[in-house]
Simulated scan of single mutants.
Amino acid sequence: MAAVWTLSGGARAVLLLCWFSSCHISVSAAGTFTRQLSFQLNPGWNSSSPPAGDLLHVRAVGNNDTLHFLFCSQGAPTLLLVHTDSASSSVQVNWTQFLSRNTSGGLQVEPESSVLSSAAVVFSRLLEYDDVNNTADPTSDLFPPYELRDFIWSRLQLSSPAALLCGTTPTFGNGSLCLQLSVFDLEGRDQSWPRLLHSANSSQLGVWLDGIPPRASHSRFLLELQVVGGASPVSSVDVRQSIDDEFTPSIFKVSQWVWSENGSADVLGFAQWKPVAYRRRRPALEDATPCRHSPPRPQSGVAAASGLVRAFFSEPQSVGLNVSFGLAGEPFYNSTGFLSWTLLVGVGSPPVDSFSPLVLTIMAVGLGTPMILLLLGGVCVCLHKRREAARTTYEPIN
């Protein structure tokens, strides 16, 4: 019986390792879906001089659907995602209406009947407060907010598959707030932390504050985001735990802001981030600082803040939240004068991180080794008892 039990235990350890590996392979295989990307800056603009603010259109074509990513600096920076069930859908811009910003219809996706879902993420305000007591409480000593719709935005700098946008105000001097949009044709990870897992249905926005002069010696910042939909967007933020921090050291959580429409249970889109920011341009573990988010609440006035929202949505409804950087006891913004944060935005459900091969191996070894040692100990005990029994057995008398 001991020999049979030892064999089954070893087989179980091997099967456990194979099962973990097959799960990882199956998840990796699911990420082979690709999209064909094309980029167009200011589509349909015929003048030799550029418009007041840029509009970038990234068309991501799948097998039988299309994702339209539209990134605009008309007012507050805005990323609009439109998902259609046609591989030939297109974007049409009426620049006269678009630039007037007084009516909807300046931007349309055709055919209109092909639109499955649409949502926009607006970076509306940058807030700063004086954390003189080092409590990281943003409700006290708030300075007047920076309205991002009033920023002076640079021309979009394209380097496929990314676009960089930087803005400033007269009070910033040489400081700036920058956003970098990256769009993907397949599943993968960024090379720098926090190395979020992206798919062909998502885009990534890197945000950083560089050299902004603080208004106090203990300054901390918050960034206000708004999600805009066409009809009663419903949203919630879930925080998911993990035991794997290989790709983002010391961070075992991921925040997922998902939204749907009209009370539907189907997730139409998401914004996903790791609750961490970095105080230097090249992220390192010692420069990581935690971040928090407020509960999402209904907002107003988003159409006036974003030209893209005004042009696309006839009756925009928005929900907003704040992301605050730094906890009590963490260094202030003044320590480095730099802060970076990364956000993933996409359609459908957010990507789910699987265990990495390293963690799978550690788990297999950690579970299999004690089992094998226990079984070997059982075999040794059984053999020892059999030897003792053989010594004490009486010999038969003829």
Rank of each mutant, 00 (worst) to 15 (best):
D245I: 04
S48E: 09
R292H: 03
P51L: 01
P290G: 05
C18N: 14
V122Q: 01
L197F: 03
A120H: 06
I397H: 10
G229I: 00
N102L: 10
L55R: 07
T32L: 10
A328I: 07
C291E: 01
R282L: 15
L308C: 02
V276H: 00
V323S: 00
P290R: 02
I212G: 01
P370Y: 10
V258S: 12
G366S: 08
E246Q: 15
P213A: 03
L209V: 07
L367G: 12
F123V: 02
M363Y: 08
P51D: 05
F312I: 03
H293W: 02
S199Q: 06
S300A: 13
C178E: 10
S217M: 11
L222E: 09
A311P: 04
T248L: 01
V352Q: 13
G10N: 07
S88M: 05
A328S: 11
L80R: 03
R215T: 07
G211M: 02
D190F: 00
H24G: 08
W153I: 06
R189P: 12
D85V: 07
P233R: 02
D266Q: 14
G307Q: 02
G53A: 03
H384P: 02
E315Q: 13
S182N: 09
L7D: 08
G173D: 09
Q191T: 14
N201I: 04
D141L: 08
L56E: 04
L16D: 14
L181I: 04
D245S: 05
P275I: 00
R310W: 04
V381M: 15
S314M: 05
T289G: 06
S21C: 05
S38E: 09
C18K: 09
V183M: 07
S264M: 08
H198T: 00
T392W: 12
Q299C: 10
L358W: 09
A303Y: 04
Q108F: 04
I25D: 12
P283K: 00
G10H: 02
Q191E: 15
C380M: 14
